[in-house]
Design a protein around this nucleic acid. Structure first.
Lengths: 155, 155
DNA sequence: TGATATTGAGTGTTATAACGCGCATATTCA
DNA sequence: TGAATATGCGCGTTATAACACTCAATATCA
């Protein structure tokens, strides 16, 4: 523990309560936003994680991405991407093909159906985002983004 | 969809990208903070959800709380609190007792062991919070909290 | 070149989450 | 008071996540 924090804990918790309140607010806000997104996705039969994979694959060229690349680009830690992709393959959203030069790699691509789905979701998701955050003006959104970015830069 | 958002989508995405970036930042930040907390909790054998239940129970008098009260106070939606409490009961952290006046209710209490555990976690969790967010000053933390609170107030 | 280490993908298994249903108790109201 | 409704809790089942491990392919280096 850093000396300054130790002092603050011994004094009561003037500082500690603010960081704790901040974490609580981040968590609560994420839960609300996530819940809204999942409600939008539910009629389409995919989870938020699957939607993120679709966006990741759309955002990277037609060559596809291997499993670990997908895993590393996901927002949340996901130790079992193989079976996540299994389910998406069963759903006809992606295909997998072993790389010919390095046979350890398996490239995952969007199918036409997968691409059509993620494209079709742009509008409803944007609408949901606007419903949740549209009442903040650009300066507020920018400030929020900057503070969160700064927060993730652990000293 | 609101007319203004429709216009913005048709124009490209000058506004939509900011709200989307904000949501992405909230999610990424929460993932980082959550991961840190869970790493702290892992040696103690409890999950972040269980830790939240412990804090909720500590924060409410010795009368205990019924299942739905606990569920409603949790940060994230949790549809199966019964079995969550089952596991905590097996772990000796809580006890349950059916209410005598309204026999539908089952009050959950902290055991001595549960209280000792949540008390013992205060320092390591505060330390973790400080490690993650301690480089933000009070004004920044307060601004972040206010913006997140505002963000959750959907129009 | 042959042994060793490293990397990438997937699987077996267990634990937890999600969804819906059923049962018991209370409450409401004709 | 008796029937209908509402509320609270738990369970059965299925789906997904988490963890450890194996196996194949490549890279490294004596």
């Amino acid at each position: 523990m850093t000396p300054s924090l130790l002092q603050q804990l011994q004094q009561g918790k003037p500082f500690s309560s603010l960081v704790q309140e901040a974490h609580l607010n981040v968590g609560r806000t994420e839960a609300v936003l996530q819940e809204g997104v999942e409600r939008v996705l539910k009629p389409f039969g995919i989870s938020a994680t699957q939607y993120n994979v679709l966006r990741i694959l759309r955002g990277s060229g037609a060559e596809g991405l291997c499993r670990n690349e997908i895993r590393d680009r996901l927002l949340t830690r996901m130790p079992d991407v193989s079976r996540l992709l299994d389910r998406m393959e069963e759903g006809g959203l992606v295909t997998r093909q072993r790389d010919t030069t390095d046979r350890r790699l398996v490239a995952t691509h969007l199918t036409d159906r997968g691409r059509a789905l993620v494209d079709a979701l742009d509008a409803p998701i944007a609408e949901e985002h606007a419903r949740r955050l549209g009442h903040l003006d650009d300066v507020q959104l920018r400030t929020l983004i900057d503070l969160l970015t700064l927060a993730r830069r652990t000293r």
